[in-house]
Computed example of a mutant assay.
Amino acid sequence: MKTVLCYGDSLTWGYNAEGGRHPLDDRWPSVLQAVLGAGVYVVADGLNGRTTAFDDHLAGADRNGARLLPTVLMTHAPIDLIVIMLGANDMKPWIHGNPVAAKQGIQRLINIVRGHDYPFDWPAPQILIVSPPAVSRTENAEFKEMFAGGDDASTRLAPLYADLADESGCGFFDAGSVAETTPLDGVHLDAENTRNIGQALAPLVRVMLEL
């Protein structure tokens, strides 16, 4: 049995811009699980507002992906592959709004995964970096201000992440090639688009796990 950990934010959690949370079957980690079948165990660890490696004290939960990752790795070990899709929340102006900083945040996560002290001498998992779909324009006043400038900055994540993946020997996938954010808030995904990500990731995950 292979274990795949999906480490992300509200796009992995299944946030529904129409209100609430997408049904379990519509969330992309669940779709990935369904496509891969019983020989793979897919763990979804999504947290609303999670950043790559930066603090955001506006919620009761710790949103710093770098600080949380070691605990998550220990919780679900042994892990064969970790799929990291983060960076959208880094585009908030009060976080930093800079795609280069998000790339550096992803580099920090790679270093944590590879340098972690796993129990029983288990090897570090392979890493698949996924750039989130770009933030889009919206008439939602709150989200428009929350992600001001993010529609431009987030389009730069995919090429930066692709270069980082190539340099660091990780897998890479651009989720924006198969999914786009909803105009309801410019950030999240409708059910069809989140399902698209799970479907599209399955062939790459199979290759990386040698299934």
Rank of each mutant, 00 (worst) to 15 (best):
V130K: 09
N111K: 15
E192C: 07
L157E: 05
E180N: 02
W94I: 07
K144E: 11
I129F: 07
N48I: 12
G198C: 06
W13E: 14
L5E: 02
D9V: 13
P133N: 12
P133M: 12
D9I: 13
L11D: 05
S136L: 11
G20C: 07
A141F: 07
E180H: 13
N140M: 09
R21G: 00
A61M: 11
I106R: 04
L73W: 10
N98E: 13
D9H: 10
R156D: 14
E210G: 07
P29I: 09
N89V: 07
Q33M: 01
G60Q: 09
M74N: 12
T155I: 06
E142M: 14
V35K: 14
Q126V: 07
P203T: 06
A34F: 03
P125R: 03
K103N: 07
D151F: 03
A61I: 10
I95F: 10
V113K: 06
M1Q: 11
V178K: 00
I110M: 05
A38G: 11
R50Q: 12
S10G: 05
L36V: 02
S136W: 07
D185R: 08
F172I: 04
L86A: 04
I106T: 10
Q126S: 10
C170D: 01
T155G: 06
L209H: 00
W13C: 01
G14Q: 13
S177H: 10
G8K: 03
F120D: 15
T3P: 03
P119K: 07
Q33V: 00
I95G: 01
D166R: 13
F120G: 04
N64L: 14
T194F: 02
Y15P: 04
W28D: 03
A158L: 13
I127H: 07
G46F: 03
G97D: 10
Q199D: 04
